[in-house]
Simulated assay, not measured.
Amino acid sequence: MANPVLIAKAAAMVLSNEKIRKGVGWIVVAILSPIFVFVAILCGMLSGAANHNNSALDLCFHGGEIAEDVPEDYREHIKAMRDSFAVIDGIVNELNAKMENGDSLDPIQIKAVFYSLYFGADQPSAVDSRKFADCFVTFEERTRTVTTEDGTTKEETYTIPVPIKDLSVVYQNINTALGITATYEDMANATEIYYRIAYGTATPLEDDSTTGWEGWKYQLSEEELENLYHDLPAGENGSEIVKLAMSRLGDPYSQEKRGQGSYTDCSYLTMWCYKQFGISLPGTAAEQGRYCFNNSLTIAKEDLLPGDLVFWSHKPNGRFMNITHVGIYAGDGKVIDASYSKGVVVYRDLFDSDKQVLYGRPLVKE
């Protein structure tokens, strides 16, 4: 795991030296909180300093000369990480050569997870790289027909590695094989590193990407609104939360511009609604889910009331419970949410029941 003393030293050094801040800033942010990582990437992209922010990770992932200004302890950690990466690359190539049907492991993903878990460790080279790489595959026994030297055929059994697609299973394997329990921050950092190296961008914080649902609306008639409000429990704060959310129907979606004018994203919509009642929610869907969980504000799905929060996980992102989206329950099986996929705030059926992972009632904590 990352060394907190090393983090503190690096942070102090980076803040005091502009040249070094550009050179090693990404090593620091990659082992800090996921929100800080995202903000650092975003600021770098907006300021035109993305190349500088990439440089430190590139030293580990792509090689190159390490600047003389980089402190000796960081220099040694970069070298150790490079050595470990070389071993991992060899093992991945070996596993990929044994795979069938076009399957293959993504070496960037494996190294991003390794970096997140072991950068700053005293001896990452001492980690059993074979065991680590094997955490990303499952081994299947198959049969095939082979021709012997005398021209006859026979069936033989062989074993091949098959990539594991579910990262949650990979992290469970790492815990079992190596005794390392990855935190949500570790997972989020690995995801950020992967996107930065593989795509040169930051991973999306939130996303409701889904298919197979119909009937979404961004405008309701006066009659529809009247019927909705009529069915809300009178005098309940949850009902007022729903009305506030409905007042934002059709507002444009933007993670970057949220809070500017009418722009919002899913977590800003919920945060804005609850703020009117003096309740301060964190700034992302995953952290709002963590807030509800840590403060015993979760409820069962069958207990949902208007104004409650619904959380989805549409894809692994390493954040709390892999939460990627949040909406406000409107009653009668409906939800109001700022939709990434539709680009506006919508009122729709409570979609993707198989991806709903948590339900919360922050109004209890007033």
Rank of each mutant, 00 (worst) to 15 (best):
G250W: 07
V242E: 06
K275C: 07
D231C: 07
Y171E: 01
H77Y: 05
G63R: 07
L297P: 10
I241R: 02
V137C: 15
L167K: 01
S353Y: 01
V28N: 10
E141L: 08
N53P: 00
E156T: 14
S55V: 12
A8K: 10
V28S: 01
G64D: 10
N93E: 14
Q123V: 07
K165A: 15
G212I: 02
F320S: 00
Y115L: 08
Y329A: 09
V29N: 01
G90E: 13
W272T: 06
K131L: 15
W216F: 10
A2M: 08
G259D: 10
K301M: 08
L305Y: 04
I174H: 03
I91H: 06
F277Q: 06
I323E: 08
G120W: 06
D303N: 14
P252L: 04
Y253K: 09
L225K: 13
V242K: 09
P107W: 03
F119H: 09
A202G: 13
L244F: 14
E155W: 00
G200N: 09
D166C: 02
M321D: 01
V326N: 05
V137T: 07
E224W: 01
I66P: 13
R319F: 00
M321Y: 02
N96T: 11
V37R: 06
D83C: 01
N227Q: 15
R130V: 15
G48H: 11
A330M: 11
M321T: 01
T324N: 05
A10H: 11
L57N: 12
A10Y: 03
L358Y: 03
L269G: 11
D134T: 12
P107Y: 04
D166W: 02
K365R: 12
W26M: 11
L57M: 09
V344I: 07
D69R: 08
K111D: 05
G331M: 12
N54W: 05
Y268L: 02
F293Q: 04
E76P: 00
S33I: 00
D73S: 08
E140I: 11
C60F: 13
V28W: 07
D69F: 12
L117G: 03
S55W: 05
A86M: 04
Q288L: 04
C135N: 04
I91F: 05
F61N: 08
A11F: 04
D231M: 11
D103N: 12
Y340H: 13
I299A: 10
D303W: 06
S267V: 03
W272I: 05
G343D: 12
A30T: 07
C60E: 09
T143D: 08
G102Q: 07
S116Y: 00
A56S: 15
P306H: 08
V37Y: 12
P233N: 11
E240Q: 15
Y340Q: 15
G25N: 14
L228G: 01
K154A: 10
A49S: 12
K154Q: 15
S16H: 11
D69T: 04
R319S: 01
E287M: 10
G23F: 01
D352E: 10
M13F: 04
W312F: 05
D208H: 08
H325I: 09
D58F: 11
V364L: 12
Y291E: 02
G44A: 14
K154W: 06
D122I: 12
I91M: 06
K165F: 03
A245S: 14
I91C: 03
I91G: 06
